[in-house]
Write a protein that binds this DNA or RNA. Structure first.
Lengths: 249, 249
DNA sequence: CGGGGTGTTGAAGCCTGTCAACAATTGTGG
DNA sequence: CCACAATTGTTGACAGGCTTCAACACCCCG
């Protein structure tokens, strides 16, 4: 079940039939593995398959002339790297593996077919795209308006919810795997690694989080969300009303 | 021809038949007018029509608890405010009129129909969506990595190209209408109005732009793009290869 | 045991924010 | 068409958040 995470995510907002789920699974042509630090998709390339994250973490990465990197998204299991690439000629950014990753290569045309046969599935796939966009807008806010302390907190809140959606975390204060370095957080928030370090120390000192050896524990979710100005509505989890296992609203 | 700007934009990347163009025009139910400063669509609302910018400028605006505003896009003629809203329950941000605006209200279902009948049109609409997303990623970079000077320059470069695409500017150094206040630029770049002012003075002093009474003249496009680190590829203008009237690559 | 990546700390400086006042421009009503 | 008000743009002084640079500690892995 390489689509396990994806299905779990979709089922937060819709009901999928066994057939729809099976068809998704069957659209996978093969699995590819990438080592941490390597590019899964490179800027300028033209992917000939849709890439779906099966396991591991990756990042959308834009490079600047001066060598700086800015992430525009973290990709976790269940996320598409490039649903709809077929429309555009070339990738305008890189997708880079943060940890070792398993990527499902999906036949794009077959996916289109499935969507045209099941309006329900089409809507669900649309939903993932639009939520990705909403997250991206929130990243603009993070980089533009929030101070380091709130920005880092917000990022942690976002990832926590998204991880919950695919079952990689739960609503408790139990630590979950959070395999990014402080430099990765810096690339995501537009801060320097040094300042991320100091900011994390503050968050730890304030009793909001625990973050050690790639394990993140959220000690006081309510307060963390408060300092982050995190409002969960932008993730659009409402539609079905069920399936929100353990995610605090 | 309320779809004039949209058609002009789409024709930069594809060929549209007279029928396709006519069908788009016919999908417009009515035109609504909004005064500068007012919300066209509000956070939390559920639009029952697709909104297309016909004339004027608007902005996607996210509000923070402290009252701060962050823009996540400037909308100009030919841009959709919310193509695909039907998929999500509610707007997670505001669309605010910067100038007086004319908005075409389009029947969403009819638009879906058109797209399903013409894969060419569907692709073109997809293209607009994906370019909007690419622009959004670039805004993350702008807010995260670029210094004020480069960020403002980049924003001007982006708007210049986009205005060219719909015929509101050309490739010359002739001034064109650029109806935003320094506060708007501040909201877009994550800077304060005061600092935007100083940054614009620098850009003017360096002989790169002229900006007075809502008219922007780009005096040295090449140098402006250089200081901005502006690389036009992210706007994905290639596909058709023609139609790039006066836009410098 | 060694080495590279990662995390941590300190000092110094700069970019940008803040506050506040004033100038210029635009819009409005008489 | 002028006068006034409101908005927008401009300037200066000062503060502060974050960066930069550099050194060192830690940890995991071969």
């Amino acid at each position: 079940m390489k689509t396990r995470s994806l299905l779990r995510k979709l089922r937060n907002v819709t009901v999928l039939t066994r057939e729809e789920a099976g068809a998704l699974e069957d659209s996978i042509m093969r699995i590819e593995r990438f080592h941490a630090g390597f590019d899964i998709i490179s800027e300028g390339s033209k992917p000939n398959a849709v890439h779906l994250m099966v396991s591991g973490w990756a990042a959308r990465r834009k490079m600047l002339e001066n060598g700086a990197n800015q992430f525009t998204a973290f990709l976790i299991p269940g996320d598409f790297c490039d649903i709809h690439v077929t429309v555009l000629a070339r990738m305008d950014h890189n997708i880079t593996a943060i940890t070792n990753c398993e990527i499902a290569m999906i036949d794009g045309e077959r996916l289109d077919e499935l969507a045209s046969r099941s309006s329900n599935l089409a809507r669900a796939l649309w939903w993932t795209t639009l939520v990705d966009e909403a997250v991206l807008r929130e990243w603009v806010v993070n980089n533009g308006q929030r101070r380091a302390y709130a920005a880092v907190a917000h990022l942690l809140c976002e990832m926590h919810v998204r991880l919950c959606l695919v079952g990689e975390a739960d609503g408790s204060s139990e630590p979950f795997t959070f395999p990014v370095t402080q430099e990765h957080i810096a690339n995501a928030t537009g801060l320097t690694p040094v300042h991320v370090n100091r900011t994390l120390q503050q968050l730890r000192g304030d009793g909001l989080i625990r973050l050690h050896s790639r394990q993140l524990g959220i000690l006081d979710l309510e307060r963390l969300r408060a300092v982050a100005g995190f409002e969960i509505e932008y993730l659009h989890l409402m539609p079905r009303g069920a399936g929100d296992e353990g995610i605090e609203r």
